[in-house]
């Protein structure tokens, strides 16, 4: 399985920096892993623990949250909130047995297309080495509606 393993990686990207950086990477024709599925969010601070956990439940092998550089958050400190939240969820991932190393917080500016591409490559390689998420089979099961 490891040989054919193509990790699924979800990147929650802040509209003002990381998402724009991804755009920049594209227009600069920088190549990066197609494994990374980008989800645009208005601010990294908007990413909740439940979004990250649901990403794993639905089959992600790795997740990262990409926010603005320190001091540059469009909403003042959303990126720092996101960092703390990521640390909190990392602990939960350890409790669950998925492992905190499958989740990361990264920071970049809108102009750092090359960094966006590099992080996508690095994260993909890191997760490739770690292997598939231990809870991947859950995603295979018939997905159940989330009642509220």
């Amino acid at each position: 399985m490891m040989e054919n393993f193509e990790p699924v990686i979800v990147a929650f990207c802040c509209h003002y920096c990381a998402y724009t950086a991804a755009d920049m990477a594209g227009s600069q024709r920088l190549e990066y892993s197609p494994n990374v599925k980008i989800i645009r969010v208005p601010c990294s601070g908007k990413v909740d623990a439940i979004h990250i956990i649901k990403a794993f439940e639905k089959g992600a092998d790795g997740v990262y949250v990409a926010g603005c550089l320190d001091g540059d958050c469009h909403f003042k400190n959303g990126n720092n909130r996101a960092s703390r939240r990521v640390e909190y969820v990392q602990k939960y991932l350890d409790e669950i047995g998925i492992g905190s190393e499958r989740l990361e917080m990264v920071k970049m500016s809108a102009g750092m297309g090359y960094l966006f591409a590099q992080i996508a490559i690095d994260m993909t390689e890191k997760i490739r080495k770690l292997g598939p998420s231990p809870v991947r089979p859950l995603a295979m099961q018939a997905s159940q509606p989330i009642a509220c």
Binding site: I50, K54, I96, P134
Partner: peptide, 18 residues
């Protein structure tokens, strides 16, 4: 609350699966 219920349900399912 509702959010924590969701987090715990996912966490339990994923932990038990292993």
């Amino acid at each position: 609350g509702r959010k924590e219920v969701g987090l715990l349900a996912s966490g339990l399912k994923m932990a038990l699966l292993q």
